[in-house]
Design a protein around this nucleic acid. Structure first.
Lengths: 333, 333
DNA sequence: TTTAATAATGTGAACGTTCCCGGTAATGTT
DNA sequence: AACATTACCGGGAACGTTCACATTATTAAA
C-alpha cells in the first residue's frame, strides 16, 4: 500500500519535468515522440494515474453531474437513470447520486452540496421546490435539466412527459372500447403531472359527449396507499373502466378488483401509465401509456452535455408523449 | 453569477485571517465567541460555502463512496441502493454511482476511476471480476464492501445472501405442501449464488428422500430470456412445483403457465426469490424467499463506514437469510 | 554569418482549503 | 517581579495538478 505516486515522482523517474508529464497525459502535441514513448513507459510501469481532484481544482471542471431524484426504487426513475448514466458515461462523465424521498429540505441541501462539489451540471427529477425558489437557485447551479418541470430560465432546460396527452389517450381508448363510466385515480398531489393527466381525462370525456362525474375522480393522498379503498369506491359507483397514474397503482387496482370478485378485463378494464417492466410480467399484462424511459434518460443527459459544452444549441423544452401499449387488462365492453 | 467567494474573501470582509475562518468552519474551539459570531454573520450574509474539492485536496478525505452495481433497473439492487444511500447520507457521505451492465471491462475501468477520485471507500455489488484480480485490486481500493462475494482479504468485508439456505427453504416448502416433482430454474451462470441455490434445492430433495432428476433442473443463459421455453420443458416433465432465482423470473414462469392453460397455484405452484415489490402486486401474489433489501443496504453502508472510520471493529462477513413469505402462488397439492 | 522562427522542455504561480508552527496579549502562579 | 500558562490569531507550506510564460536547442531564412 505504498504511497500513491504523483506527477512529480513520475517526472523524476522519467528524467523530465512535471509539465512534460502533464502534456503527455493531456495529449498535447508539443512533445517529441521519443520522450512521449519514454514517459508513457514509466507511467505504465508504475501504474500511475493522475489525481482527478487536483486536476479539477485547477481546470474548474469535474466531469461530474449531480443527479437528484425522489426515489430510485420507483422503476420509472430507475429506467431513466439507466439512460442518463449510460449516456454520460460515454462522454466520460460521472454521476453523483442523490435521492430525496420527496423531502424538500433534503432537496435543497443536496443542491447546495452538489454546488460545493463543483459539479459541471445538474439533473433535477421532478423537484419539489416551488417555482420562485427554484428560479432563484438556477443561476448558481446552471446548467441544469429539469424533468417534468417547465421553467423558462437561463441555463435551464426541461424534458416533459405529455401527461395531458397521456390522460387523454388513455381515456379515449376506454371510451372507444365502449366504456361510458370511467374512473380516474389521480396521483399524489405533489406530482404536478397529476393535474395534467386529469385535464386530459376530462377533455376526452367532453369530446365524446360524456358527462364528468366527480364521484369517479379519486385522489391518492400518499404514494400507493389506500388504492384498494379508492377502487372499491369506484366499483360501487359502477365504473367499467379505470385509468391510473402509473403501473404500480394499476396493479393495486387489479388486486382490489380481484378481491371484490370483479374480473379484469372481463368486468373492469384497467389502464396504467409509464410502461415499466411490471406491466409486461403482470397477469393479466397491463394496457398502459408507455414512455420511452431509457430514451428519456438519454435525452436528458444529451441536453445537459450540450449545455455544458456550450458549443451547440440545445432544446430548451422537449416533450415526450406516451404511446398506448395494449395488454390484456382492457377489453371491449 | 458573480465569481464564487473564497475563504480569503470572507477573511478580508470579516477583518480576520483565512485561518480563523477555517477554524469557524470546522468548529474548532480556539476562537473567541465574538469573532465567531462576526465571522458567521459575514458567511451567512454572503452565502459563502467552502469548496469541498479544495478541502479534500488537503484532508485526503472526500466523504464519498463509490457504488458499483450491475443494473439499477433490477429492483433487487434498487432497494439495496436505497438503504445504502440513506445510511451514508445520515453520515454526511455521498455516493458516486456506477453501473456496469455486467460488463467486466467497464467494471475494471470504473474501479480505476473511483480510485482516481480518491473515494473514501467502495461498495461492489456482485462484481464480475475473478477472485485473483479482485484480490490484487483490493489493496488499492480498500476499504471495500462486497455484496454476494466472499473474499477473505485485508480491507475487505462481505455481505452475503444465504442462497443455499434460501434454495433449501423454498424447495422444502414445496415438498411439505405435497409436491414431489419440483423443477428449479437456475439463474444466469454469472451469478455465483445460482450454484448455492441449486445446492440447497438438492439438499432438500435428498433430505426428504426424493430423487434428483436432471430434467427438472434448467438454466437461464441470458438474464430473463427463454423462461417460457424452460417452463414448457418443466411442465412437459410433469412438475407441480417450480422454484426460481428471482421474482421477475417467477412472474415469467407464471405467464408461461397461464399460456399453457395451467393454473397457478391450482396446477402448478411457483416460488420466487428476493421479495421485491413486484411479488406483492402480482396476480396471484407471489410466494417468495424475501430478503430485507433495504436493511441489507444499511448493513453494507454501516460496515463500510466502520471500516472507513477505523475506530470500531466490523463484521468481516455478514450472512443474510431470506424468509419464506407466503403468497398465493403456492398451494397444497 | 546573422537573425528569425520553430520545436521541445522547464519554472513559477495558481486553484482554495487545512496543517503546523510561531507570535502576541492576557491571565495566573510563585 | 519574573515566569509559565492559556487563549486567540496569523503566516508559510502543502495537497497534485494545469496554465502562462520563459528558456534552450534546433532549424530555416536572409
Amino acid at each position: 500500500m505504498g504511497k500513491k505516486l504523483t506527477i512529480n515522482d513520475i517526472a523524476r523517474l522519467a528524467g523530465v519535468s512535471r509539465q512534460t508529464i502533464s502534456r503527455v497525459l493531456n495529449e498535447k502535441e508539443e512533445v517529441s515522440e521519443a520522450t512521449r514513448k519514454q514517459v508513457l513507459r514509466v507511467i505504465e510501469e508504475h501504474g500511475f494515474q493522475p489525481s482527478l481532484q487536483a486536476r479539477s481544482m485547477v481546470t474548474r471542471k469535474t466531469n461530474t453531474v449531480a443527479l437528484l431524484l425522489p426515489d430510485i426504487k420507483n422503476p420509472f426513475f430507475a429506467e431513466i437513470v439507466c439512460g442518463i448514466e449510460r449516456t454520460l458515461r460515454e462522454k466520460q462523465m460521472n454521476v453523483f447520486l442523490f435521492t430525496t424521498d420527496e423531502d424538500l429540505e433534503r432537496e435543497v441541501s443536496f443542491i447546495n452540496l452538489a454546488q460545493n462539489y463543483n459539479v459541471d451540471g445538474m439533473i433535477l427529477c421532478s423537484p419539489r421546490l416551488d417555482d420562485a425558489n427554484l428560479r432563484k437557485l438556477i443561476p448558481n447551479i446552471s446548467p441544469v435539466v429539469l424533468l417534468n418541470r417547465d421553467l423558462e430560465a437561463d441555463g435551464a432546460a426541461s424534458v416533459m412527459v405529455g401527461a395531458q396527452h397521456g390522460g387523454y389517450t388513455a381515456t379515449k381508448h376506454l371510451i372507444e372500447q365502449g366504456h361510458t363510466r370511467i374512473g380516474i385515480i389521480v396521483g399524489p398531489p405533489l406530482a404536478r403531472s397529476s393535474v395534467k393527466r386529469l385535464e386530459g381525462y376530462k377533455k376526452a370525456l367532453e369530446e365524446h359527449g360524456l358527462s364528468i362525474d366527480p364521484e369517479l375522480i379519486v385522489t391518492v393522498e400518499t404514494p400507493n396507499e389506500g388504492i384498494h379503498r379508492l377502487t372499491q369506491h369506484l366499483i360501487k359507483n359502477k365504473v367499467t373502466g379505470i385509468t391510473t397514474y402509473n403501473d404500480i397503482s394499476a396493479a393495486y387496482v387489479i388486486q382490489a378488483c380481484t378481491e371484490m370478485n370483479m374480473n379484469v378485463p372481463g368486468d373492469i378494464s384497467v389502464i396504467g401509465f409509464d410502461g415499466v417492466i411490471l406491466s409486461q410480467v403482470m397477469n393479466p399484462s397491463l394496457t398502459t401509456m408507455a414512455l420511452p424511459l431509457f430514451e428519456m434518460g438519454e435525452t436528458i443527459a444529451n441536453t445537459l452535455i450540450k449545455m455544458i459544452k456550450g458549443t451547440e444549441p440545445y432544446e430548451r423544452l422537449t416533450n415526450i408523449y406516451p404511446l398506448l401499449k395494449k395488454g390484456n387488462s382492457t377489453r371491449v365492453k
